[in-house]
């Protein structure tokens, strides 16, 4: 991977994520027959939030401030490990997929702790849900990863999602289809999208992620939104690379393909959010268990 690719990787990680939110919202607006907010609305929001002041609750401590920061930093580090399209990752070593998963766990740990730091029942509720659903999402993620490990013999994301992916599709496409579906479910639940959570809801009792950050304001809330956008981008990149295993060999085409894939994913999420209703809270564990089972089928297929 050339130095240009590394620089581009970092730059794309820092700049591109909020755009996905814009695309999702435009798609939803189109479905609803509205004009919708501008494509760059998320950037405007971030700029405004980072210029604002913050209000802090008297109950909170340093843990409250650590929540958004740790989540943002962890997501940014995880982004370095994920290959963007065919161009590889900025950082890769044996076992980096484990670091990838555990970085998100680190972010979750402090996000939930920050929610509990406010002493608000609503935020406790959101925190409990986040922690609970991740218990089922993590095995789904790892089962999917194990399929790739089995196929490639590597535990580094850059190799697992590297050049040989096209051949793997030809050989074990059935398993990979299940992994893609399972990872898509993990993506939707980890990034709090419909059908698991509605980022636009206005009823705190039913929210997961948004309710955990009710008390964050100003720059810290900006960090929350930015971190969430990066997380969506990173997990999205994982799914897109897996679903689009095409290597053109030309940098420009590879990046273009990756960009198209990400935009396509954003549109797909927007469509999902437009045509589906949110699941009832009780049904979420069943769907996550379903995702685990799907990946488990994928891995059993490889046992031949």
């Amino acid at each position: 991977m050339s130095i240009v690719d590394v620089a581009l990787h970092v730059l794309v990680t820092l700049v591109a994520p909020p755009l996905l939110l814009g695309v999702i919202n435009k798609t939803k607006a189109a479905f609803a027959g509205r004009v919708g907010p501008p494509l760059l609305q998320a950037y405007f929001d971030l700029a405004r939030l980072f210029r604002k002041g913050s209000v802090f609750s008297a109950t909170t401590t340093w843990v409250f401030r650590a929540g958004p920061i740790v989540a943002l930093v962890a997501a940014a580090f995880a982004a370095m490990i994920v290959p963007y399209g065919a161009r590889g990752a900025a950082l890769s070593f044996a076992g980096d997929m484990i670091l990838f998963a555990y970085l998100f766990a680190l972010g979750r740990f402090f996000t939930v702790a920050a929610a509990l730091d406010t002493g608000s029942a609503f935020e406790g509720m959101g925190g409990a849900r986040e922690a609970t659903f991740s218990v089922l999402a993590e095995p789904a993620l790892f089962l999917g990863m194990m399929v790739l490990v089995r196929l490639t013999g590597s535990s580094s994301l850059a190799t697992m999602l590297g050049g040989g992916l096209g051949g793997l599709w030809a050989r074990s496409g059935a398993s990979l289809v299940m992994v893609v579906a399972s990872l898509l479910v993990v993506l939707l639940v980890e990034c709090s999208r419909i059908p698991f959570d509605d980022p636009n809801t206005h009823l705190e009792l039913t929210m997961i992620h948004e309710v955990m950050v009710l008390d964050h304001s100003g720059p810290l809330f900006g960090a929350v939104l930015y971190g969430a956008a990066i997380k969506l981008f990173v997990l999205g990149a994982l799914v897109v690379r897996l679903a689009l295993p095409i290597d053109t060999g030309v940098a420009v085409y590879d990046w273009g393909l990756f960009a198209a894939g990400m935009l396509g994913l954003a549109v797909a999420i927007g469509v999902t959010e437009s045509v589906m209703a949110r699941l009832r809270m009780r049904q979420i564990p069943s769907l996550l268990v379903g995702a685990c089972l799907l990946s488990a089928f994928g891995i059993v297929l490889l046992a031949r």
Binding site: F56, S57, A58
Partner: peptide
């Protein structure tokens, strides 16, 4: 100055 938790 800090305020009470907003709590909706």
């Amino acid at each position: 100055a800090p305020v009470p938790t907003w709590d909706c």
